[in-house]
Each structure stands twice: as structure tokens, then as C-alpha cells.
């Protein structure tokens, strides 16, 4: 599965467009890490627990996006966009969407 955030892929031709696909996830860290992050907030710096959380959430959303695209027979997703919002306090919500396409090598 080829994933890009450009509309076209250099060296490839898009033959069929399959519509919008998306992947989303809502994840949280356990309460202990939330408390540690609260303490870290006093001195500033990187909140590794939350960096990790966002990474995990993004990976999972990406997996789900690929899964949706595979199901409808795509071999690439172009023009993907990430969006994040805080749906619940302390939880990370990641949404990825893009256009699923079928590509072939350009002559």
C-alpha cells in the first residue's frame, strides 16, 4: 500500500479512483502516566507518555486506514490528511483520511 500526501505519485499513473477512505482511533494512557505527566507539566519539557500515546494512536489509525483501503481493492492512498482533536480529556483522537486509488507504473 503506497501512501502519500500528494495528489499524484511521480512515476505512477492513477487508473481508478475508489473514493474517500478513513482511519480513526481514540486512545488513552493509563491513569498512572496521566499523573506523571501532570508532575512533568510543572517543570516543562517533553511529555514522553503523551508523545508515545500519539504515536501509537497514529500507527493504529494508519493500520485501520490501510485495512479499509485494502477491503475496497485499492493499492494506494493519495492526498492523505491527518487531523487530531481532543474528544475526551487525556485521550488522543487521530483521524486520517485520503482518496483510495488504483495505480500502475507509468510507461
Amino acid at each position: 500500500m503506497l501512501i502519500t500526501n500528494t495528489e499524484e505519485i511521480p512515476g505512477k499513473n492513477i487508473t481508478t479512483c475508489l473514493g474517500i477512505v478513513s482511519g480513526s482511533t481514540v486512545r488513552a494512557k493509563h491513569a498512572g502516566k496521566d499523573i506523571m505527566a501532570g508532575f512533568k507539566n510543572l517543570v516543562g519539557g517533553e511529555l514522553t507518555a503523551y508523545t508515545e500515546l500519539l504515536g501509537e494512536a497514529r500507527d493504529q489509525a494508519m493500520e485501520r486506514l490501510k485495512d479499509q483501503a485494502t477491503q475496497i481493492g485499492a493499492n494506494a492512498i493519495v492526498n492523505i490528511r491527518f487531523s487530531t482533536s481532543s474528544v475526551a480529556a487525556g485521550a488522543s483522537e487521530i483521524y486520517i483520511y485520503g482518496t483510495a486509488v488504483i495505480i500502475e507504473d507509468a510507461q
Binding site: 487508473t15 479512483c17 473514493g19 477512505v21 482511533t25 477491503q71 475496497i72
Partner: peptide, 14 residues
């Protein structure tokens, strides 16, 4: 270029 939308059978977002 063709447009050939399909819906995924299985919702993997939930």
C-alpha cells in the same frame, strides 16, 4: 480515469 466507489464490508474504525 475511472471512478469506481466501493464501501468496505467491514468497519475497521471501531
Amino acid at each position: 480515469m475511472k471512478y469506481q466507489a466501493r464501501l468496505p464490508e467491514h468497519n475497521s474504525n471501531i
